[in-house]
Design a protein around this nucleic acid. Structure first.
Ligand SMILES: NC(=O)c1ccc[n+]([C@@H]2O[C@H](COP(=O)([O-])OP(=O)(O)OC[C@H]3O[C@@H](n4cnc5c(N)ncnc54)[C@H](O)[C@@H]3O)[C@@H](O)[C@H]2O)c1
Ligand SMILES: NC(=O)c1ccc[n+]([C@@H]2O[C@H](COP(=O)([O-])OP(=O)(O)OC[C@H]3O[C@@H](n4cnc5c(N)ncnc54)[C@H](O)[C@@H]3O)[C@@H](O)[C@H]2O)c1
Lengths: 204, 204
DNA sequence: TTTTTTTGGTGAAAAATTTCACAAAAATCA
DNA sequence: TGATTTTTGTGAAATTTTTCACCAAAAAAA
């Protein structure tokens, strides 16, 4: 099964949205409702789901809890994944303590910084380490994903280090696009570029 | 001229990358180099630029400074834009003091929170206000863009308020997709979904 | 000077993605 | 019961996006 990035992204959002629906106690959701919450069309939602072999019920829609379960297992979002954060400045330390990642199965189990000063000062219940111990900590804790929150100048160097330690997924918050080996999945979240995009769409 | 979102997004990234090249003093850049830095192909870069009527020089590429200038004016990224942040918690207050937005022409000129406590405690040189004064402040300062960093439950309400005050661009950091009037541009940055996407791509 | 190489520009082809159209199934209604 | 409505599932059509092929221009090399 070979899903496009667009499809994967939408399915992940559906998965997230199902969590919210679940809390309301609603049992069934139609493709049109999902589409509305996603900014997509009902066709697209149905097609995306059918690509995974997921089917709903005529005249009822999809059963919320079983859809969530199926998506979770088909997209491998059900298990727990361990992640670390490199760069414990303003942004990195905010992320370090964001409890909601836990709820979604993402466990931030370590923070790294090259400044001993930062490490000493930081107040968190998550263990923090100097970058030197990255290899050991990542191996030992079985960390799969790395979050980069260092200045752009150091982003590539950190990405190299992370992939060198066996990390296969990278979420990069620096404005510099990092290049990674083929097998590694990397996503860039460039806030400034998001603002540029908005400005460009606004025009005038 | 009707550019696709993909094209606009790439052009914005090129614009950002040109800033970095400019600092190195390099005068010309080829479509292949830009493509490399972007994770695109040289065809796409050339086509994107040509859609804007931007042309380069045979055997030299594009002149960095004039390309930046042209992109800036064609995409309206050259001027200064004023933005505000609503929700001054962990993330919002980190964004409030992120100086680099300034360098790119985005001026964060106000912060809003509904908690008086937060407002009193926050240490920043940017003016902060209770949400009640949003309308006045936005009008008075000419704020065009709003950044939402409140909990998901309040995101839609804040988006409504912002658009009600005339804000036309929204960058939403909450995990809840907000719906806005047609004329308003909104971008969602859902970190958890980015992690989900990575996890789904990783598989196993 | 002539040839070769590099790089951009662009219409056409190919590929990918989205939308559509409609059959089928089930709930609702008359 | 039988007609009607609603909603899924999906192959086909339409649209969009990307890639390709190849020409022209200019620099470099011969
Ligand atoms: N803070 C924001 O609101 C914000 C907004 C948009 C983008 N960003 C981006 O996020 C990244 C982090 O921003 P920030 O404001 O938190 O920066 P910051 O300067 O506050 O923190 C950066 C941290 O990274 C550490 N560091 C630097 N080089 C390192 C290395 N090689 N290995 C390990 N640690 C290293 C520093 O010691 C510091 O603690 C930057 O790339 C920035 O552009 C931040
Ligand atoms: N902190 C993170 O690292 C992080 C990571 C991922 C996503 N997010 C998302 O970003 C958003 C902010 O996260 P946070 O951790 O900074 O939250 P937070 O709880 O620290 O801060 C939220 C702030 O919003 C204010 N607020 C609440 N309702 C409001 C309203 N209606 N109008 C104005 N202000 C209001 C609160 O007073 C508070 O100061 C959330 O949606 C969260 O899911 C945060």
């Amino acid at each position: 099964m070979d899903l496009s990035n667009n499809t994967i992204e939408r399915l992940c959002r559906i998965f997230g949205h199902l969590g919210a629906i679940e809390k309301t106690g609603v049992e069934f959701v139609s493709s049109a409702e999902l589409a509305g919450a996603l900014g997509a069309t009902s066709y697209t939602v149905r097609k995306d789901l059918s690509l995974l072999g997921i089917t709903g019920f005529t005249r009822k829609g999809y059963e919320v809890s079983s859809l969530k379960k199926e998506l979770g297992s088909k997209l491998r979002l059900a298990g727990r994944r361990k992640a670390c954060i490199v760069g414990l400045g303003r942004l990195g330390s905010a992320l370090l303590d964001y409890e909601k990642f836990q709820e979604d199965g993402f466990e931030i189990v370590a923070g790294f910084d090259r400044s001993v000063n930062k490490l000493e000062r930081i107040r968190t219940h998550i263990e923090v380490y100097p970058v030197g111990s990255m290899k050991d900590v990542i191996k030992e804790k079985g960390i799969e994903m790395g979050i980069i929150t260092v200045p752009g100048e150091h982003a590539q160097e950190v990405a190299d280090r992370l992939t060198g330690c066996g990390v296969r997924g990278i979420l990069n918050f620096s404005p510099v696009e990092v290049s990674v080996p083929d097998k590694v999945v990397s996503v860039n979240m460039d806030f400034t570029n998001a603002l540029r995009f908005i400005a460009a769409k606004l025009g005038g």
